[in-house]
Design a protein around this nucleic acid. Structure first.
Lengths: 138, 138
DNA sequence: CTCTATAATGAAAACGATTTTCAGTAAAGA
DNA sequence: TCTTTACTGAAAATCGTTTTCATTATAGAG
């Protein structure tokens, strides 16, 4: 299970395993859409009612630092997090239900080379994100 | 001049022309990199010292509403604004000095069709943004 | 299994960015 | 010139996030 992997990773980096952390990790690892810290808090409190919002922030910070989760930029805001993509993948978001999918295989080399030539920029990174409707929401 | 065009557009949409608004518009229209509300405030106060930060927020809101400026998402934050792209253009940002350039001619149709087929999504929008070093910063 | 150092906790306070409220001011059309 | 009302800046309120701090509990040592 993904949650187990994340907890192990936290431990291996010298972080302790606590009930609060476990509750947060389990919610985020299972999420099929990006969750804000407040949403994580609300959902994780069902498992662990003593949980504080501050701990959610602190745990998300560590998960992001270990590249286990990543922040998702959306028109409505940029506070939500989702499981990090592995390797060179990009996001595809459902505009209705928020479902997050990853895809790979973007071949932008030709485009990037042409832009570099036109602008004189040395291009070092790119963000590509798609929005649409998932099968269920069409 | 771009500032004139924006002021005219504001007027045509029923908004009044004031000194505070003129000061904000002139700063943002001339910017070569994305500016946060606070940066706009600081720069515009040189022209119009009575200016309030609240008015900067309110003016930016109207300029965005009229699609004259757009918010720029960056790893460091998503509060800054830049002149809006015209038509189907994307952003290219210098990671060192922040210079913003627009480019067009992204041919993603093949990619989008393949992702749509693979995922079942009806893709309706895409965000593409490039980061690198401009000629001067390399 | 117990002890101990210290990482982690939650509550409250502080913080930065943004929005709202409000009474006074000024743009623009009559 | 007058009048309506959009616009203003200051202050207060709000929202998301971070810091502070005293207490708790994990994890490694003994």
């Amino acid at each position: 299970m993904l949650a187990e992997t994340w907890l192990k990773a936290l431990q291996e980096h010298g972080y302790r395993l606590t009930d609060a952390r476990r509750a947060v990790v389990e919610i985020v690892a299972l999420a099929w859409r990006a969750l804000t810290p407040l949403e994580v808090f609300d959902q994780a409190r069902a498992k662990y009612p003593e949980l504080g919002l501050v701990t959610v922030y602190r745990t998300l910070e560590k998960l992001e630092e270990l590249h286990l989760i990543q922040r998702v930029h959306q028109p409505e805001g940029c506070q939500a997090f989702i499981t990090a993509s592995q390797g060179h993948q990009h996001l595809l978001l459902c505009q209705n239900c928020g479902q997050v999918m990853f895809f790979e295989g973007d071949d932008l080399d030709t485009l990037l080379a042409s832009i570099a030539a036109k602008t004189g920029y040395a291009i070092r990174e790119h963000w590509l994100q798609l929005f649409g409707l998932c099968r269920n929401c069409q």
